[in-house]
């Protein structure tokens, strides 16, 4: 009984996670400027990853494996926030100095 409830919850979480990933990808096409795309990608994809990680937790064979999934999620969260900040800063500096400062070749 408990097993089937967990299974249903897992499938629901997986579907929700997939939906978020789908919407995040949609954001890459529907938003017209780069910074809005970063918004979509950072927030929605991290949520999708969170749901999928949560769905995989009952599947974990040991406590350490479960904690590892959580650790990977936290790392991906920090990585995504840092990348978003760095790309946004690069875009902003590009705005301020015009589109210039392009490399001559390469």
């Amino acid at each position: 009984m408990i097993d089937s409830v967990i299974l249903v919850v897992q499938v629901v979480l997986l579907v929700v996670g997939c939906l978020f990933f789908g919407v995040g990808t949609l954001g890459l096409f529907r938003f017209s400027d780069t910074l809005c795309r970063i918004h979509a990608l950072t927030k929605i994809d991290n949520l999708g990853l969170g749901f999928i990680a949560l769905a995989l937790l009952p599947q974990a064979s040991s406590l350490a494996t479960g904690l590892k999934v959580v650790l990977i999620w936290l790392l991906a969260l920090a990585a995504s926030a840092t990348s978003a900040h760095l790309v946004a800063r690069a875009v902003r500096s590009g705005d301020k100095t015009g589109t210039g400062r392009k490399r001559g070749n390469g």
């Binding site: 919407v23 949609l26 954001g27 938003f31 927030k43 929605i44 991290n46 949520l47």
Partner: peptide, 17 residues
């Protein structure tokens, strides 16, 4: 973060963005 994701998703899915 759930609110954030739902918020961006809602904006994306509404026809006028």
């Amino acid at each position: 973060s759930v609110v954030a994701g739902v918020d961006v998703g809602r904006r994306l899915l509404s026809p006028s963005v």
